[in-house]
Amino acid sequence: MTADPTYRGFALDAQTALALLQWQAELGADEPCLDDPLDRYDLPDRIASVPATAAPAPPPAPRDEARDLVALAEQSASAAGTLAALAAAQEAFEPIELKKGARNFCFADGRAGARVMVIGEAPGEEEDLQGRPFVGRAGQLLDRMFGAIGLARDAADAEKAIYITNVLPWRPPGNRRPEAAEIALMLPFLRRHVELAQPEIIVLMGNTPCIAALNRQGILKLRGGWTEAFGLSALPMTHPAYLLRTPLAKREAWADLLSIAARLDAGPRP
């Protein structure tokens, strides 16, 4: 572009003209005008006349970040060949924000290879401190419940043992309920956890495990009804924390425990 040597009747030297040009650029005038006017309304017709092969490619579709993270979790979980490797992979999984506010990673407790695998919701305060699931008041009640049918987390015999984990291995802030995105992100690890633990029966303790394993909720309606989760027999039960708040519900929980005992007696592990 050639600078106009005059400006409103005043002669301009090169330095002044350059300063004015820079000033206009700072105001947003980033290209010079043409000598002939351009009818911008003609542009659609001109574009339409360009051959189809010359049309620009459409922009790529936006990526679904949540789906990408779940795929990354599935890749990490499926690569684990042992429970120890799975625990290491899940503990090292960075994309979940939940872990940043937790004290400890709570993977599992009890005896791997047990016929019964209990799946809870998430660690509470005491579990977060100790790094083990179900060790607070609810966990103590859980031990008494399964002890009543001859099962224990510390049993040396797999036939008499239980294996315990949670959907989320980190405590949610303020013991809030896990969010749907958090459940979805941890589900690949939970699924692989079940595959490696190889239980015969799964006990779904509360709504969150039912959401994760069955895509259903409403534990008071689901409890006591045998179903299938991760390809195995599964029984939803009310969480021990609910039983502590609602002692009258212990009668139904006892019926569920008897149902588990009967299922174990009727179908021993091959």
Rank of each mutant, 00 (worst) to 15 (best):
A3I: 07
P5T: 07
Y7M: 09
G9R: 02
F10R: 15
A17I: 03
A19E: 15
A19C: 07
Q22P: 02
Q24P: 06
A25M: 04
P32F: 00
P32E: 08
R40V: 11
Y41N: 14
P44Y: 04
D45I: 05
R46M: 11
A48H: 10
S49P: 05
V50H: 12
P59S: 11
P62N: 07
R63E: 15
D64W: 02
L69A: 13
V70F: 04
L72P: 08
L72H: 11
Q75N: 08
A79Y: 01
G81D: 15
T82E: 06
L83E: 15
L83G: 15
A88I: 00
A89F: 02
Q90L: 10
P95L: 05
P95W: 01
E97L: 06
L98Y: 01
R103N: 13
F107K: 05
G110T: 01
R111G: 03
R111E: 13
R111A: 07
A114I: 00
A114N: 06
V116G: 02
V116L: 11
V116A: 08
I119C: 02
G120W: 01
A122R: 07
P123M: 02
P123W: 03
P123G: 07
G124R: 02
E125D: 15
E125T: 14
D128P: 04
D128W: 02
G136E: 13
G136D: 14
G136H: 08
Q140H: 05
Q140N: 11
L142Y: 00
M145E: 10
A148P: 07
A148T: 12
I149V: 12
A158H: 08
V167E: 12
L168Y: 08
P172G: 07
G174C: 09
P178W: 06
E179K: 11
A181F: 02
E182S: 01
I183H: 07
A184V: 08
L185P: 13
L185Q: 12
M186G: 06
P188T: 06
F189N: 09
F189S: 11
R191M: 06
R191L: 10
R192K: 13
H193P: 04
V194Y: 09
A197R: 03
E200C: 11
I201M: 06
I201L: 15
I202Y: 04
I202M: 15
V203K: 02
T208M: 01
C210T: 08
A212S: 14
L214S: 10
I219N: 10
A229K: 04
G231T: 04
L235A: 00
L235V: 02
M237P: 15
L244Y: 06
T246E: 14
P247S: 11
K250S: 15
E252S: 13
A253M: 05
L257G: 09
S259G: 14
A262L: 05
G267S: 09
R269S: 13
R269G: 02
P270C: 09
